[in-house]
Computed example of a mutant assay.
Amino acid sequence: MRRSEQRRAAVVALYQHDVTGRPLSELLGSDAPPFTKELVEGVERHRQEIDSLIEQYAEGWSLERIAPLERNIMRVALHEILHRPDVPLEVAIDEAVEQAKQFCAADAPRFVNGVLAAVARAKGLVRDSG
């Protein structure tokens, strides 16, 4: 299974957990690929930090106002950006934007990209151009 598919599976599990409250272990299943499990467990382990960053850089939006799917796409991407040095920044952001294009409202890709890029700049992971 490709990493992009495993990212999508992690987002879906986290989304379902948010919406239904079902345990992540039940949503993932014992046969989930290791990368998917690591993403979900990493998001859960760092949820407070990740959610705080989303709220801080999603100007004018509280975490609760952000659609659950968009919120979880950003959570997975931020976990990768902040805690997975093996995943290039551009890959984490591009994968998140692609998921937003496929599964969210028309304005979601721009919003997701903006929040992730703002966090990356604030953390010194990219330089501002210009």
Rank of each mutant, 00 (worst) to 15 (best):
E64P: 00
Q99C: 07
L63K: 08
V91C: 03
W61I: 10
Q102P: 00
L63C: 08
N72T: 06
N113G: 14
I73T: 13
D86E: 05
Y57D: 14
I93T: 01
A100G: 03
E98M: 10
A105W: 06
E95Y: 07
C104R: 08
V87K: 08
F111R: 13
P109H: 03
P68Q: 15
Y57A: 13
L82H: 03
P85C: 06
A100W: 10
L69V: 13
C104H: 07
L89R: 07
L78K: 11
L89S: 08
R84S: 15
N113C: 13
I66W: 02
N113S: 14
D86G: 03
H83M: 06
I73N: 14
A105Y: 04
D94R: 15
P85E: 10
F103S: 11
V112I: 11
Q102Y: 00
L89C: 11
V76R: 10
I81F: 05
I93C: 01
Y57K: 15
V76T: 02
Y57L: 15
D107L: 00
R71P: 06
Q102E: 08
F103P: 12
L89W: 10
D107A: 05
N72G: 05
V91P: 01
L63I: 12
N113F: 14
D94H: 15
D107Q: 01
I93F: 02
E70D: 14
E95H: 13
V76F: 09
V87A: 02
L89M: 07
G60C: 11
P68F: 15
I66P: 02
R65T: 09
F111Y: 12
L82V: 03
I93G: 00
V91W: 09
V97P: 03
D107W: 00
L78H: 06
P68S: 13
M74R: 00
P109D: 07
R65Y: 03
D107I: 00
E80M: 11
I66N: 06
A58G: 04
